[in-house]
Nucleic acid binder design. Structure first.
Ligand SMILES: [Mn+2]
Ligand SMILES: [Mn+2]
Ligand SMILES: [Mn+2]
Ligand SMILES: [Mn+2]
Lengths: 223, 223
DNA sequence: AATAAAATTTAGGCTAGACTAAATTTTACA
DNA sequence: TGTAAAATTTAGTCTAGCCTAAATTTTATT
């Protein structure tokens, strides 16, 4: 590890991890957008992370970065903190799932390993956060996610909601209202090949609901 | 307020508040010791805080600083966070009262006002933290503490423990063991004028205990 | 009141992590 | 396949907050 993994570095690593998840390397621009920082500043940091001892990222000019094993461990540590915190805030302080993100984004950098362990214990060692995202294990292994986008289902298919994208609080509130939350079962009543709309029967809901791809691409299910 | 009250500034203000509590102004050296920072660095920060708009401290060369009204509000905000956090960590995550301090010292700077409000609500709007220290109110007023040092009691006096100094974890563990914790009643069975020792009968304890001034000066009671 | 010690300030310097503007490289597409 | 747009890097700055060493002021003690 470099001498110190600052809060700023933790945020870089976390976002690089998430960008790496969906395909290859994380580009300077993508990182800059997610961190709300000028691209030139990102370049500087990437060079620093790449020449740290040991290196936290693999960086080739103009080709973005990938995490090294060390970088990934550091990223998973932060992600575990974040997701445990979200779970903790929802269950013990009554936060709703669209409110926790900002709070966890700051707390994730300052809690101790003891705090992390106490939360995990108090919550019964959960494997998913309130949005259904997988929580890395205490020894920093990310479980495999086998869910697929709700948008990929077709008429008569049945599935269980596992995870919803937590990017957009408004979308989260909407999903909460229509009952599309993790662990709920759904049945696809019909599919429109024109607009991709899905008509769904949602467990526990009186009437069916029709969702467009803007929504169904953000919800992930296990068949 | 200055443009931003950073974490560093928050810590300065908090410690200046505590130094101001017991007598006049906070000296450069005292602040430096408490913050573990070189005195020269403290001078620089004090000058900055004094010339902020509005000023957060009143500073005269070589004479230390006092908080302005604005500085005091900012300090009380941090202290409220700290003491609510200590209470919260003890009651919801099972921390012992000698473990909470370090954790709260970091968290106090990053929690939101919403988090503060939710903690206060969940805890039933407590007025004291686990060590018995008074918690500033939501509108940032510090309640008046009327307790006096246990060391000032004499034979046959009766009192209720209100507060113990939280500086020393080892002392806290000792006090916990002998049952000297907030809200417990005590009776002074005898006083030694030679060494200042007090023999105490502690509510809920089988046998009496003898405490020296090193301990009794750190425990505060209401008669 | 003189002087030694302690406290404090000044001066100069450093690092982390951001920024803008300009230069360069890559990519897209005509 | 050349050129324009987009992405990225370089170069030069800036601020916050710390440091050490040296100078100065205050205080304590004779
Ligand atoms: Mn963060
Ligand atoms: Mn999440
Ligand atoms: Mn602090
Ligand atoms: Mn305390």
């Amino acid at each position: 590890m470099p001498d110190t993994i600052t809060q700023s570095i933790q945020d870089y690593l976390k976002h690089i991890y998430e960008l790496n998840e969906h395909g290859g390397s994380a580009s300077t621009n993508d990182i800059a957008i997610r961190l709300n920082i000028a691209p030139a500043s990102v370049t500087g940091m990437l060079q620093k992370l790449a020449s740290a001892t040991p290196p936290l990222v693999i960086y080739k000019k103009h080709q973005g970065v990938t995490l090294t094993k060390n970088g990934e461990k550091a990223a998973l540590e932060v992600i575990r903190h974040h997701r445990l915190l979200e779970t903790f805030l929802v269950t013990t302080l009554g936060y709703s799932w669209d409110e926790v993100h900002r709070e966890a984004d700051k707390l994730e950098h300052v809690i101790s390993e003891d705090f992390e362990a106490r939360m995990a214990e108090a919550l019964g060692h959960p494997t998913r956060d309130p949005h259904g995202e997988l929580i890395p294990t205490a020894d920093l292994v990310m479980p495999v996610d086998e869910s697929c986008p709700l948008a990929s289902l077709r008429t008569d298919e049945t599935a269980t909601v596992r995870r919803v994208s937590d990017d957009d609080p408004a979308l989260l509130r909407h999903l909460r209202e229509i009952g599309v939350v993790p662990e709920v079962k759904i049945v696809v009543k019909s599919y429109s090949e024109f607009d991709g709309n899905l008509t769904l029967q949602v467990e526990g809901q009186k009437s069916n609901v029709v969702l467009g791809t803007a929504v169904t691409s953000q919800v992930f299910v296990d068949k």
